[in-house]
Write a protein that binds this DNA or RNA. Structure first.
Lengths: 213, 213
DNA sequence: GGACGCCTCCCCAGTTTTGGGGATTGCGGT
DNA sequence: ACCGCAATCCCCAAAACTGGGGAGGCGTCC
């Protein structure tokens, strides 16, 4: 039984390139090739693919929306996103819409055939940088409900940290706490050490996300 | 510069097997090999690895707890879980504890060296079935209700804002977005205007508290 | 065509932060 | 009495950020 593949991509060169590549692979059959996703559900119904390669940028209906529609109608079809972009928003939108893999166009070729095979075996092919993003997203999620970690900040350091989060400069903090500018600096250095950060912006982000204030 | 690797695994055969395998790889150096994680933070401090291979089943402290401890003390170290089990609970616990990859023992060997290389390049190596689980988890995630407060930031400004919250400097942002330093400055000025702030720290605080990212 | 927003790049001059060092006091343990 | 540590202060040089300008290209809407 060969694997039937459908391609959605507005660029004809890309479609033809992929088709050419896949034709050299045994057990793979091109079920269809489409330049837009306006009729994607109907197209899929007609061509009955097992796996779909979906571009994100397309006129009319975006690849992400197409994934949602197709998955709704055919939950068992595996969809592999393939795009030039890796901004977080589109990556997660694609995954949430139901994509089973996400690879960047710059390493298509050899990877593509491997990815298709992997999909069929229950895998989830992702380009390395995409996989990392996904893990980071998952790591962020539970932070909102996770037990607060103690960074062993001293009372004075916590006061300084609170001022930093308010957006005060060293000078203003010194003023408010009635200490010298240099003392503020000392506290900040200690905070950097304890929080494993190296700038005020990182400090603020960490302080808020981990509820240190 | 070779990559320093530390191994935590209670099975001596496994430790030795991995060490044997890695010694054949150029640019890889065994920093340490430990049969338990009871002193993991101290062990890591002494052996200074770049990458850690962590088994889950260990007497005393579990590999998952060890990941949490090590990541807290050394956030920059990459940790690769390698275990025989793939039940959901342990997979997600490991990821949430801070692991950067998760591979199954049954395809160690060739995959292991690739995975280590991938980690160093910012990837997140996962066995195919693990990757699939991770994606499914992400798809299940509750859809967070978006707050209606809109500061009318342009798409580009939002990208810049996201970088700022990550703690990147102007230079690093310019690099990541493939624009010049001065353009980043322009965007930041516009963001300051629109958010009514006057420094990066205020910006980060407002962005996180108002969920603008 | 003109107005407007967005994205891109540039200059100058000034302020703030950062990364290295130091140093002193005082307080609480062993 | 000694040690650790929080808290206070100091200096220097480099790097980063800020404010206030200007300017061209591109697209949309009226």
């Amino acid at each position: 039984m060969s694997i039937r593949i459908a391609i959605f991509d507005d660029n004809k060169n890309v479609r033809d390139g992929i088709a050419l590549l896949l034709r050299t692979v045994p057990d793979v059959e091109i079920a269809g090739s489409f330049s837009h996703a306006l009729d994607c559900v109907q197209d899929v119904r007609n061509s009955r693919p097992d796996v779909i390669l979906m571009d994100i940028e397309m006129p009319g209906i975006s690849g992400i929306e197409a994934v949602r529609l197709i998955k709704q109608a055919f939950p068992d079809i595996q969809i592999l996103m393939q795009t030039a972009f890796e901004d977080d928003e589109r990556v997660f939108a694609s995954i949430c819409a139901g994509a089973s893999g996400y690879i960047l166009k710059n390493h298509l070729d050899s990877l593509l055939t491997d990815s298709i095979a992997s999909l069929q075996c229950g895998g989830a092919p992702m380009s390395p940088s995409i996989a990392r993003k996904v893990l980071e997203k998952l790591q962020q999620m539970p932070v909102q409900t996770a037990p607060p970690v103690d960074y062993h900040l001293s009372p004075r350091e916590k006061e300084v940290l609170a001022c930093i989060v308010e957006g005060l400069s060293y000078k203003m903090i010194a003023d408010r706490l009635h200490i010298s500018y240099e003392t503020v600096r000392s506290h900040v250095k200690k905070i950097y050490e304890k929080l494993h950060v190296a700038s005020l912006t990182e400090t603020v982000a960490k302080a808020i996300n981990h509820k240190l204030i």
